[in-house]
Design a protein around this nucleic acid. Structure first.
Lengths: 106, 106
DNA sequence: ACCATATTTCGATCATTGTCGAAATAGAGT
DNA sequence: ACTCTATTTCGACAATGATCGAAATATGGT
């Protein structure tokens, strides 16, 4: 069931710390950001950050790639697009909400 | 801080039961749905449903209107659009992700 | 082999959440 | 006033989550 997956992803970014974290990665683009940089930026314990990163990775929203001793984290854009699509898709099923300003019309 | 608000809303729909609930209301459109109908549809205890509805209402995602003894619940589309907008806005800040298929280009 | 840096895993603690049933409240009809 | 239906509030419980510091692991340089 896709809804379960969507709920997990929404819950993942439904925490202020993780949303901030995810935002940072989304803005960073394909370059990504090392874990250490994220720790400095967010100012939280390394273990806490690791915990949150793990949750984002589990849902597929974030990926990691090793570069020597540092781990580069990246936002997974296709997954992000799917999630946004899922939400927008929900919209307008029966009512005109104007979310896309043209999709709603029959 | 808008991020806090977005996180709260994402968390609200980040629970399977609430996402299902919200989805039902979003699909219902302006007509909305009575609480009792939602209870039958979701098959959960009335008190549990009330609890979840309360959370959705607190974040502004859902509104209620009394009609005699029944309460009609409705999705708040503008809020929904804002939330989707917030997510899409995050995207493409520094990278081309193609979410809107035209915004990203410089 | 050893050391230094980067990151995760472990163990603990405190707060929050999801769920229920039972009791309370709200509104309308008799 | 009484009763019926609709819904919420209360009180409880088990489960999960957020956070930290300390210890463990990973990778590369000397």
């Amino acid at each position: 069931m896709k809804l379960e997956q969507a709920a997990k992803q929404l819950e993942a970014i439904g925490n202020p710390t993780r949303l901030k974290l995810y935002r940072t990665l989304v803005r960073a683009g394909e370059a990504g950001r090392p874990v250490g940089y994220l720790q400095d930026t967010l100012g939280i314990a390394a273990s806490t950050l690791s915990h949150h990163l793990h949750r984002l990775i589990l849902t597929g929203l974030v990926t990691q790639e090793r570069q020597a001793t540092t781990l580069i984290c990246r936002a997974n854009y296709p997954i992000m697009r799917d999630l946004i699509g899922f939400l927008a898709d929900e919209c307008c099923a029966d009512a005109a909400c104007g979310a896309t300003e043209s999709d709603a019309a029959a």
